[in-house]
Structures are given as structure tokens and as C-alpha cells.
Design a binder for these strands. Structure first.
Length: 575
RNA sequence: GGGCGCGUAGCUCAGUCGGUAGAGCAACUGGCUUUUAACCAGUAGGUCGAAGGUUCGAUCCCUUCCGCGCUCACCA
């Protein structure tokens, strides 16, 4: 948005708090300029209702912030306080006109309305009318895109379930007809009317009664292009949700994914739990945390980067099968696949191991795909995938050798390769190995595929393979080059766990925890049964299932840089 | 942080090889009872992101800045 479209902070100071009105107005005298009290008027407007005895404004009047149109609206005495830059003076003027006619533009009560989708289903087609054809019903929603024929007006009415065309006819709406101009696209209305079709067969409700439920003083987006500014779509998701095609569906699908997962896990006798978001030690993953502070306790706390260590405490606690839909926070850069806060499903199951976790991934992915799309077939970035199990299993170390031409633990060749890739040579060896690996392999994993048996060094919380202690019982699941999940047989040896924690802390890596989580080690000392654990990135799974190419498209309110002060700012905030 | 790109009417965008700007939609006025991006006629609406420089003259050229996007880096 161009900066000029935003009101400056000065706008709000143009208002008198004591009268609640524009100070320009009080100086008004008939035929004189509202703003400077000089007599002449070179850009006086000649039409529209006015509560000012004169709306004339001379060319020498100081140019008001927000432009002349907004200034004129202020000069009329309203809005009662300054509005954001998107409030339209003409619409604001209609508020007053409505009140004059005894109509509350923001009534307290709504109406009992039927879902439009259900009404459409019952209405049938003009060739084959359904049981609701000719019936009178009440609908409620947002009206858009008016088409005015003089004695007939059409507009679509939207509710969450769908949209239907409304027809207003002069002959059928005697009471409301004179007020039709007070309605605008974007308004919330209730329509009572008779269901039928137009000559072209368009399902239509012919209104017999109209009730304004809430006036929209901000105009909806341009009707043909809609909201095209991506940033604006994310910032004003409340508009995007009804103004852009398919947006609401994405979030309905997201909801379906979560409820499917819950149902699925409950069927497997899992318990849904909630563990802390405020952590004294940021553990359970390698990531930089957000830091916050608790005043009363006088301590530094971290927003959780993963719920893992708490959930495993619950396995020690005997809850046996637990899961959490966890919002995690990582202080990292943004990308099409990374948002600073993201949702992860984590689950832990006693007596299970990572092979059982593979099975769970397959169950969950298949069920979610069917729930959302009715099929396991998906298309992502133009390529087709099938989420039907079983998924291929590929060994990390073998794939490493295959792709790179040398073994994962061949340090000299690893360093040479890292140098070729321009990686920071100071990076810790195992991290370097993973970076080298991902440079080639990560995106190439079309999948669905389980990449399994990682070098133990990059799996501080996973159990070693009994037959090869250099490898960990861990897998990540990839589809379309995206890492969707991560699982392992959980390490439950407190001594080994303590050793790995200390090793991690010693690296001083900003992504490693700052101190050993001794309380967690102590929990393991009480004995944790063998267990499998799994994390699934819900945002990425939803991306995959909806074909969204960026994580922002599956987050209702993705993290955005705050707007500069003064933009769409609440004028009250200045006081 | 590096690279590329964008910023013109409320919205979506043209345009000016340097002479202070146009269209469609939205708004307003008039017409129209079956449209659906309705249509027809008219009106109004812009410090061309900001500041500086070059120039007789800058929205256009140059510099800097601001904002945003894409991308690289960063990010198990």
C-alpha cells in the first residue's frame, strides 16, 4: 500500500475529545469555508446530506491529512472519531442517514438463518425444483457486488457455507425499497424471501424483507481482481477469507486434518495433553528460542521450541500414549516453509519403537488425505504423489554414500565437499555432514519415503540401533522434498542422555540448549519404558494436502513485520 | 545481510524517449424488472512512495532513504 494512503498520526489530533467532533466544524458559518472561515469556495461540493450548515471549503484551507474526501466527512460532524484509511466517507454518511430513519446500523441481535449451502441443496434447479422451491426462508451473510437495474437489484449473499443470489424487486419490497441506496457491497444483512430461479436458471432468493445486520464502512476489494496484494491478504485475512477464492476451504481442510488426527489417535487409545509453552530450558530440538521474562518469578523463560521433553516425562509418568498439538516457536528466518511459530503434532507411545511410528505416520497421512481430499492422490507443485501405504524406507547412510560418493563418516572428503558448497568450515562436523547431505538429498526425496537410521551424533534424543550403535533408530518422512515428520525410538538411558546433553551444551552452539535439563535426566532415572516418539509438522502436512506452496497460505495470520507507526493505528492509542 | 524487482486515483493497472497524468472497477447523479466482471450516459477523485540533485521545466534521468515482494544466505 502506498504510504500516502495511510493517515498520518496527525489525523487523530484533529479531533476534539471534549466534543467528540471535528474542530473544523464548530467554526462553521453559513456560506463560509469550514476550515479557514474565509468566505470563498472554489472546491465546494454540491451534493449529499450534511449536518453542517455549510460544507463549503475554500482552496486556501489547510490540506487535511487523509485527503479532501475524508476531510469533508469530518466537516459534516462524523465519524464520531477518526477511522482507518479504508473507511469510506460516503458509507459513513449513510450511517447517519440510517439512524435518522430509525434504523440501527449495528443492531444488537442477529437472526436465525439457514445455511445457504443447505438451502441451495433443497432448492434444486429450475428444471427440477427441490422441496424448498417456492418456500420462504431467512438467510444471513455478507452482500457483495450489487447489480442495479432500477426496479430490480441482484447481489450475491455469502455465508460460511456458500453463496446464493438475492433479488430485490421494487414491487415485492415496498417498505425497504426507498432505502436500497443505503446498502453497500460488504454489508452484513439478513434476507427473508422466497426461493426460486431467474430466467437463466440462477438460484435466487426473492426478498420480501431486508434487515441490515451491520454496516460495512470499509469497501470490499475490487470485485474482479479481488485482493491481489499478498501482504495485504495475510494482514487482512478477515477480508481474504471471503474475498478470495478457496481461502476458507484451506482452513476448513486444516481443521479437518486436526480433527482427523485427534479421532485417529483417540481410536488408538491416545490421551491428548497440554504441556507448558514457557520453558526454563529450551530443549527437545536444535533451534534458537524466543526469550521472555516472568516478572514475579524474576526469571528468564523461553517459548518452547518443542514439547518433546515434557511429553516424555508423561511417559515416565505412566500415561503410556500421549499426544499434543503444540505451537512451537523458533527464532529463525522466514521462508516458504518456515514460520517463527508453527504447529506440530508430537506423540509418544510406550512399548513402541520407531517402526511402530512409521506405521502411525502411514495411518495418519492416509486418513488425513482421505478426509481432506477423498483420495490419497495429491498434486503438489505440478507433481503427483500417492500417500497410500506402505512407504519406501531408505537408509540415511546408504543414501549419503550413493549421492555423495563417499561414506558419511569420511571426514576429509566431507570437508572437501563442504568447501565446494561454500559451507562454513568452522561448523561442527556432524552438522556439516547433515548440511552436505541436505544440499543434495533433501529436495530430491519425492516420496513418500522414510529416511531412516541416522548417524547417532545428530540424534541426541534417539536410541542407538542394538546391532549398530553408531546409528540411531530414527527416521524422517519426506514427501515432495518436504520434511514432514521426524521420529525415533526414544533414548531412555539416563546416563547416556546426560552424556549427550553435556556434549551438546559444550558445543556452545546457539541452537543447542544453554544448560543440561537435569530434571529430565532425573525423570529418566525413575525409569521410562521403551517408547517410540513422532513429530509431524502440521503446517507442512496441510500445505501438501491443499497444494499450498507457502506456509503462509495455511496459517490464518502468518508472522508479519509490524506496520510502521501511524498506519491504520487506533487513534485512541495516542491518549 | 547480498542480488533482482516493485511503489502512479479507494482497488487493479496503463503511460510519459523530460513539458505536473489515463482506463476499468469502486463512489456519486440519471436511465433500465432476470443480471451475474450487468449495461448506457455523466460527475467527482491523484504532492505519480519520500528527500535531494541535474534541468528553463522532473512522475519520468541520477543519488540517497522508506516500504514491500521474490531470491540467496540463515533455518534438523
Amino acid at each position: 500500500m502506498p504510504a500516502s494512503a495511510r493517515p498520518s498520526a496527525r489525523t487523530s489530533r484533529s479531533w476534539s475529545r471534549s466534543t467528540g467532533r471535528c474542530r473544523w466544524r464548530r467554526a462553521t458559518a453559513p456560506r463560509a469555508c469550514c476550515a479557514c472561515r474565509r468566505g470563498a469556495s472554489s472546491w465546494a461540493s454540491s451534493s449529499g446530506a450534511s449536518c453542517c450548515s455549510s460544507r463549503t471549503v475554500c482552496a486556501r484551507a489547510p490540506e487535511p491529512p487523509g485527503g479532501r474526501a475524508l476531510f469533508l466527512a469530518y466537516a459534516r460532524g462524523y465519524p464520531p472519531r477518526p477511522m482507518t484509511e479504508i473507511a469510506q466517507p460516503d458509507r459513513i454518511a449513510k450511517l447517519e442517514e440510517l439512524r435518522k430513519q430509525g434504523i440501527d446500523p449495528f443492531p444488537a441481535r442477529g437472526v436465525e438463518a439457514r445455511p445457504i449451502h443447505a438451502v441451495l441443496a433443497g432448492l434444486g434447479t429450475s428444471a427440477e425444483p427441490g422441496p424448498l422451491a417456492g418456500e420462504s426462508v431467512t438467510l444471513a451473510g455478507r452482500m457483495l457486488n450489487l447489480r442495479d437495474f432500477g426496479k430490480l437489484i441482484f447481489f450475491p449473499l455469502l455465508d460460511r457455507s456458500g453463496r446464493i443470489q438475492v433479488g430485490l424487486q421494487r414491487d415485492k419490497l415496498t417498505e425497504w425499497w426507498p432505502r436500497r441506496k443505503l446498502l453497500d457491497g460488504g454489508d452484513q444483512v439478513a434476507i427473508r424471501g422466497v426461493l426460486g430461479h431467474t430466467q437463466k436458471g440462477e438460484p435466487t432468493i426473492w426478498a420480501t424483507e431486508v434487515r441490515l445486520l451491520a454496516k460495512a464502512v470499509a469497501a470490499p476489494p475490487e470485485k474482479w481482481h479481488g485482493m491481489t496484494d499478498k501482504e495485504l491478504r495475510y494482514r487482512r485475512r478477515y477480508v481474504d477469507l471471503w474475498a478470495s477464492e478457496g481461502v476458507r476451504e484451506v482452513f476448513e481442510k486444516r481443521s479437518a486434518v486436526l480433527s482427523t488426527i485427534r479421532r485417529c489417535l483417540e481410536e488408538q487409545n491416545y490421551l491428548e495433553v497440554e504441556t507448558p509453552t514457557l520453558h526454563p530450558i529450551a530443549g527437545g530440538a536444535a533451534a534458537r528460542p524466543f526469550v521472555t521474562h516472568h516478572n514475579a518469578l524474576g526469571v528468564e523463560l523461553f517459548l518452547r521450541i518443542a514439547p518433546e521433553l515434557y511429553l516424555k516425562r508423561l511417559i515416565v509418568g505412566g500415561l503410556e500414549r500421549v499426544f499434543e498439538v503444540s505451537r512451537n516457536f523458533r527464532n529463525e528466518g522466514l521462508s516458504p516453509r518456515h514460520n517463527p511459530e508453527f504447529t506440530m503434532l508430537e506423540l509418544y507411545e510406550a512399548q513402541a519403537d520407531y517402526r511402530r511410528m512409521m506405521q502411525l505416520v502411514e495411518i495418519l497421512f492416509e486418513r488425513c488425505a482421505r478426509a481432506v481430499n477423498g483420495t490419497t492422490q495429491i498434486t503438489f507443485r505440478g507433481k503427483r504423489y500417492d500417500l497410500r501405504p506402505p512407504y519406501q524406507v531408505v537408509s540415511y547412510t546408504e543414501l549419503f554414500r550413493e549421492q555423495q560418493g563417499f561414506a558419511y563418516d569420511d571426514e576429509p572428503r566431507l570437508r572437501a565437499r563442504a568447501a565446494e558448497l561454500g559451507l562454513d568450515p568452522a561448523t561442527e562436523r556432524w552438522k556439516l555432514m547433515d548440511q552436505v547431505f541436505e544440499s543434495k538429498v533433501g529436495d530430491a526425496l519425492e516420496g513418500p519415503v522414510f529416511l531412516s537410521d541416522y548417524p547417532v551424533e545428530i540424534c541426541p534424543l534417539a536410541k542407538q540401533k542394538p546391532e549398530n550403535p553408531r546409528l540411531a533408530e530414527r527416521f524422517e518422512v519426506f514427501v515432495a522434498g518436504m520434511e514432514l515428520g521426524n521420529a525415533f525410538s526414544e533414548l531412555n538411558d539416563p546416563f547416556e542422555q546426560a552424556r549427550r546433553f553435556e556434549e551438546q551444551v559444550a558445543t556452545k552452539d546457539p541452537e543447542a540448549p544453554g544448560e543440561v535439563d537435569w530434571d529430565y535426566v532425573q525423570a529418566l532415572e525413575y525409569g521410562m519404558p521403551p517408547a517410540g516418539g513422532l513429530g509431524i509438522g502440521i503446517d507442512r502436512l496441510v500445505m501438501l494436502l491443499t497444494g499450498a506452496e507457502t506456509i503462509r497460505d495455511v496459517l490464518l495470520f502468518p508472522t508479519m513485520k509490524p506496520l510502521p507507526r501511524g498506519a491504520a493505528e487506533d487513534p485512541q492509542a495516542e491518549e
